[in-house]
């Protein structure tokens, strides 16, 4: 089953999930397109896992509607479910089976035939770099390896859509990077991924990101879009010889594309932050302007990309009160 061309792969409309008298997810809406990596970011307990469970059909929404691959997940049949891959937040495979046996179990669970599974399992173990550990008990491999095994198990039946719940939680930065490399490879293979994470800087790997807090969706945007929302515009980082700084500021401040100039306190001598509407348009023009004065020695020019941690904090501060709701218009 595939979403029709032009249709969203996943569509949430004003979805609320209530447990008891508490709304764990409230009024969330978004559309996810085929072939994208859609990140859901937010602090622990913000409703990321519940939202994933709503999309996989484990939970039924209290109100609102969920459509995945063009159907309500609650009505999925077995062949619909074969299109989904799911990597839960915790390791839920079997520690007393070895890596290979766990993979075989996952393949059988999805009905992958004996003839097809062998090659597929070999490929996947190679993909997640567990080939050497195939005979090792899952209980005896490291936490990071268990996460990779869980990912391989989620991919064994070649799903169209993969839900990955906090794959990088509690693992080292190197391994986290490797995970995202693998997600990018999957995307390159045409898969769609929904990935939740607590690590804000990981949103850089996503095509679009939903920011959640207290069960509510704060906004959905691209990583660049998030940066622009935090900083208000694009920012260029320009450094000239310290003696030329005055001249450089004078030239740039008169330029029509420059919205403003700042000199950060701890920045190296000759550095300045230049605010523009669109960095890609402004950058060549501002370089040309600086070069028009032969006395100015331009040392460095480039787009300023602050860490997403900083962007996220800034965004949180801006959105603190009242909580705004932004729906994707994708």
């Amino acid at each position: 089953m595939q979403a029709h061309a032009g249709q969203s792969l996943i569509q949430l409309q004003q979805v609320t999930k209530r447990f008891g008298d508490r709304d764990v997810v409230r009024d969330v809406s978004w559309n996810i397109q085929p072939g994208e990596i859609f990140g859901i970011v937010g602090p622990s307990g913000c409703g990321k896992t519940t939202t994933v469970r709503l999309m996989t059909g484990v939970y039924i929404p209290t109100s609102g509607s969920v459509s995945v691959l063009g159907k309500d997940p609650a009505t999925f049949n077995a062949s619909d479910r074969e299109q989904l891959g799911y990597m839960p937040q915790l390791f839920v495979l079997y520690p007393n089976l070895n890596v290979l046996e766990n993979m075989r179990f996952a393949a059988s669970m999805y009905g992958v035939s004996l003839t097809k599974r062998r090659k597929r399992i070999d490929e996947l173990l190679d993909f997640v770099e567990l080939d050497q550990a195939r005979k090792t008990l899952a209980g005896n491999i490291s936490g990071g390896m268990q996460r990779r095994l869980q990912l391989a198990a989620a991919l064994v039946h070649e799903p169209e859509l993969l839900f990955v719940d906090e794959p990088t939680a509690g693992i080292d930065p190197v391994l986290r990077g490797r995970f995202w490399d693998q997600f990018q490879e999957l995307k390159a293979m045409g898969k769609s991924l929904v990935v939740t994470t607590q690590y804000v800087n990981e949103v850089a790997y996503c095509d679009r990101v939903a920011v959640m807090r207290d069960g509510q969706l704060l906004l959905v945007d691209t990583p660049d879009g998030l940066r622009r929302r935090a900083l208000g515009s694009d920012v260029l980082n320009i450094r000239v010889d310290a003696e030329d700084l005055r001249n450089a500021v004078r030239i740039l401040s008169r330029h029509q594309l420059v919205l403003g100039i700042e000199r950060p306190h701890n920045a190296p001598l000759g550095s300045m932050m230049v605010y523009v509407d669109d960095a890609s348009t402004a950058l060549p023009e501002l370089i040309a302007a600086l070069n028009s004065d032969p006395t100015i020695d331009t040392r460095q020019v480039g787009e300023y990309n602050p860490p997403f941690d900083d962007i996220f904090i800034t965004l949180m501060e801006r959105l603190e009160t009242p909580v705004s709701k932004e729906h994707s218009n994708a």
């Binding site: 077995a78 479910r81 989904l84 799911y86 839960p88 079997y94």
Partner: peptide, 14 residues
């Protein structure tokens, strides 16, 4: 207890 049931629920298993 192990959480495998969640994995089963998403899968085509009955």
């Amino acid at each position: 207890q192990q959480g495998s049931l969640e994995m089963f629920r998403v899968s085509p298993l009955s």
